[in-house]
């Protein structure tokens, strides 16, 4: 089955049609879950990155901030995935045809890879060089902000 066929099947499934039939205020609620997840995720990344860049919370160990923000990041990602799927299901073929949707998915994949590899390693050790820490922070911020921007663009094209 091709991706397009999969998207068509999702949209025409009883689940896709059910979500699509719901009141527009329910869809507004789904959007609220999405922005809540996005804010939890982005603010955690911003907080960690400010610390890695030496621009804030310098008296607090990096590992401690990473530990404290971890649950916000994963709850945020969970909310984003759940609400994102509900947004996708009733109009999957529209998303399929939208370049920014695919840009967002690629950026998301890259951001997640960086997060669980480089970023995780850096935020769990205190002995990292300042340059590596700064590079990780800038890369992570750029990728996650890219995800957020691409997301905002989807609705306009």
């Amino acid at each position: 089955m091709s991706t397009l066929e999969l998207f068509k099947a999702l949209q025409t499934s009883s689940f896709g049609r059910f979500i699509g039939s719901l009141d527009h205020l329910v869809h507004a609620g789904i959007q609220l879950l999405h922005i809540t997840g996005m804010l939890l995720l982005l603010s955690s990344i911003v907080l960690l990155s400010l610390r890695l860049l030496g621009l804030g919370l310098r008296q607090t160990p990096i590992a401690e901030i990473a530990n404290a923000t971890s649950r916000f990041i994963w709850v945020g990602l969970g909310l984003l995935a759940f609400s994102g799927f509900l947004m996708l299901a009733p109009s999957a073929t529209n998303y399929y045809a939208n370049d920014f949707f695919w840009d967002k998915l690629i950026l998301l994949a890259l951001a997640l890879i960086v997060h669980v590899s480089l970023f995780r390693k850096i935020t769990r050790s205190e002995s990292t060089s300042a340059i590596t820490a700064r590079f990780s922070a800038v890369l992570s911020l750029a990728l996650w902000f890219g995800v957020a921007f691409a997301g905002r663009f989807i609705g306009f094209f």
Partner: peptide
Amino acid sequence: AFPIVEGLHLIGLAFSVGLLLF
């Protein structure tokens, strides 16, 4: 213009309301 401004509004929120959350 409009989606760029909206994107920046969201980034601004992450710094303001987001950091204030912590």
